[in-house]
Design a protein around this nucleic acid. Structure first.
Lengths: 110, 110
DNA sequence: CTCATTTATCGTAATATTGCAATAAATAAT
DNA sequence: ATTATTTATTGCAATATTACGATAAATGAG
């Protein structure tokens, strides 16, 4: 067998694509937007807002938590999710650095 | 059956997640970085630079082209790829707008 | 303790992605 | 026309993702 992804690619490439992958599903974008909108955190309201089943939402939340974009506080029988500000800023800078790469200005390529 | 993704989610959510999905693979990040680095455009050099087979690279290039991030100029037997500056800027703004959403400043959530 | 509420996990089916060998398509060179 | 070069496409196997019903786990209420 060849090399594994993490060996072939640089840590930065893996980090950036890893975050992008998690952002690469509309339900997860919707979840993040909803968490941001309701400044206080939400839990199963997401199931209502977004039209997906509870296990599905739970799974998406898990992935968002895995990459550190959100964190969840257990409050009795409910779990209250919110943005992880440190990670969020870090991701913002990661994407900005990548997208601010100087693109050649000329008309066409070559 | 329920609704389709594109029906459930907003155009913005679909657009943003669609781009993120394409960025969600380290090889495609590597390809973009390489295209940006070699200011003149490259083609099969990517196969050399990145350790993947030619059909695999070709496929990744296709996806990048599908979302408009790059374009390819046919030059004889070779194809020369480069960043599509208009789309790139658009994507930059799309991500900036999303990531600049005001995150609640408070210590913890809830 | 029992019941209701909320979230997580398991199991599974459907679908999508990834990677590549084989091959086609297109052009350049001779 | 034949051959070499470069890229795209096809076909397929391996793997990953997505969605959800069923169920477990955890807590609060009575």
């Amino acid at each position: 067998m060849g090399l594994t992804k993490s060996e072939i690619f640089s840590p930065l490439q893996n980090e950036l694509s890893g975050i992008a992958k998690v952002l690469g599903h509309p339900a997860r974008i919707a979840i993040l937007q909803e968490i941001i909108k309701s400044k206080s955190c939400i839990c199963g309201d997401l199931v209502q807002e977004i039209g997906l089943a509870q296990p599905t939402i739970s799974q998406h939340l898990k992935e968002l938590k895995n990459v550190g974009l959100i964190k969840g506080d257990i409050e009795g029988t409910r779990v209250c999710y919110c943005i992880n500000p440190e990670k969020w800023v870090q991701v913002k800078e990661l994407f900005a650095a990548f997208l601010d790469s100087n693109i050649p200005e000329g008309e066409d390529c070559c």
